[in-house]
């Protein structure tokens, strides 16, 4: 019951937040002048005519970073249960975690050596 009440509270907080944002949008609709025309709604590009598309393909390096991020993020998820019961397990937890971290660090060093982490 308590869990459900907490869950309901969180959902409620999200809904109230959304309502708050849209209430502000409503107030803007009410108070702000609105006189759109083509020149005003054109993309701002420092006063020039916008050249070409803005939604263009971007660098592959972002993808490499996203992959490494995923690996490390999942790793933290694996750490999470071990860390919570660390005191009950004792030395065994330390040894296991050390092995795990060592494997991860080898991976990070490999990426580093391959120049994935170099942003240029």
């Amino acid at each position: 019951m308590d869990t459900y009440a907490n869950l309901a509270a969180l959902v409620l907080a999200g809904l109230v937040g959304l309502a708050f944002v849209f209430a502000l949008y409503g107030a803007v609709k009410l108070l702000a002048p609105s006189r759109p025309y083509a020149l005003k709604n054109a993309t701002y590009e420092c006063g020039h005519d916008p050249l070409g598309e803005a939604w263009v393909p971007y660098r592959l390096q972002y993808y490499a970073f996203a992959i490494i991020f995923l690996i490390f993020d999942i790793e933290t998820a694996f750490f999470y249960p071990i860390v919570l019961v660390w005191r009950q397990i004792g030395t065994l937890a330390l040894v296991e975690t050390l092995i795990f971290v060592a494997v991860l660090l080898v991976g990070l060093l490999y990426a580093w050596k391959r120049g994935v982490l170099k942003w240029d």
Binding site: G17, L31, A32, S34, P36, N41, P50
Partner: peptide, 28 residues
């Protein structure tokens, strides 16, 4: 609040409106 709310013609209208909400609501 009393400043004109410009939505550029080439913008993705739905996400242009939703973007600030997606930024505010999780923090909230």
């Amino acid at each position: 609040l009393s400043k004109e709310d410009i939505v550029p013609d080439r913008a993705d209208r739905l996400f242009f409106w939703l973007g600030p909400a997606v930024a505010v609501v999780p923090a909230f």
